[in-house]
Every structure is written in structure tokens, then in C-alpha cells.
Amino acid sequence: MYAIETIGITKKFGNNIIFENLNFKAKEREITSILGPSGRGKTTLLRCLAGLENINNGTIKICGEILNNKNKDNLIKNIGFVFQNLNLFPNLTVLQNLKIVLNSSKKAQNLINKFKLNGKENEFPKNLSGGQKQRVAIARALMLEPKILIFDEPTSALDQELIQEFFKIICDLINQNRTIIIVTHDTNFAKNSSDNIFKI
């Protein structure tokens, strides 16, 4: 069973073909890395999967269902997306960043404890370190309890120690029966951490 599957998808920006006839599969409860040099459309593929970009051709299946304009909003709820630049809401504190997604103090507090963000609840993102910001972004994505988590270049801004910590976090997520898709150009990290590697 695949959490996400694309069948012959093509994406163009104008006449510029980003990728053509692409078949990508991510198995459930596994870590799949998408590896490749810059400019090959790794991020664009992720954005297509998350419904942020429309594809020109082919089919995307999420949890076995074909993605179309009608079910888009519903199907996307299965996906949590952690952007490369995280896109935290700078005007909201850590706690507010979580609670604006879902107004549940209990859930937010649990996630804050889990991601070792205690004491930072009322800080604005600009006062957090890179690793803390990333953990807030992951916690925020988990507020809606998505089955699939997509990371765009999660290790690019992290040092070795923080990469280890990030690895622990995704292992934990796998243990909670979630599917992880990671876009990276860090070959070592992909080899060491992933169940499958998809080269683009």
C-alpha cells in the first residue's frame, strides 16, 4: 500500500518542463527520500503532492485516492508539510502558532513538551534558534495529526548534532505509524536514514 503514488505526472512552467512522466511512490510507514541536484524539481514535486501546484498531466494518488479539484481540500488534510524556510507565522508566539491551526491547548502543550520547547511558549519565532524553529514547524504540522509528513530540505540549515536530533524525531514519527517523505541533497543523510531513496 502506498501513502502517495504518482503515475506519469508532468509539470511545466510555461514552456519550461520541470519533470515529465514521473512515477514516484512512497510506502506507508516508511521514510522515503527524494534525492537529486538543485534545479531538478524536487521541491516542485513536493508542492504538487501537497496540492500547492497543479500538474499538467498524470495522476496523483494520496492514501489510495486520486487527487482532483473536488476532494483536494479533504485529501490534503492527510499531509503535513514542513517548508524549507519553515514559514512560521512571525507575529504569533510558539503557542499561538500551534493554536491557530487547532484551538486545543492540551494538544499544543503536549507537542511543546514532546519537542522540548518548554519555556519558549510565549517567544516569537525570531527569538528561537534554527533547531527550535524547525521543531515548532514540525509540531505545528502535527496539530492536525496528518498521516503523511513531507519535509523540504530539513537538514540544510542544521549542524551534525541537530541532524541527529532530527533523525530521532522522524524515527519517532514512523513509530506513530506515519509516512515520511524527505527532499534532500544530503546523500549521506538520505542513505543513513531512509527506507527508500527516489532519485530525480
Partner: peptide, 23 residues
């Protein structure tokens, strides 16, 4: 305002009203 703010809100299912006034 960065486009990412709109995209993040969209993926997190934040309504338009909340997006406008709170973010």
C-alpha cells in the same frame, strides 16, 4: 508578506478570515 505565509495557512487549513486578521 512572504507567499509562504499564504501557503502554510492553506495547508494547515486556516480559514480566510483567521488568515487575514490574525496573520
Amino acid at each position: 508578506i512572504d507567499k509562504g505565509q499564504y501557503e502554510a495557512s492553506k495547508l494547515l487549513g486556516i480559514g480566510k478570515f483567521k488568515l487575514f486578521f490574525k496573520i
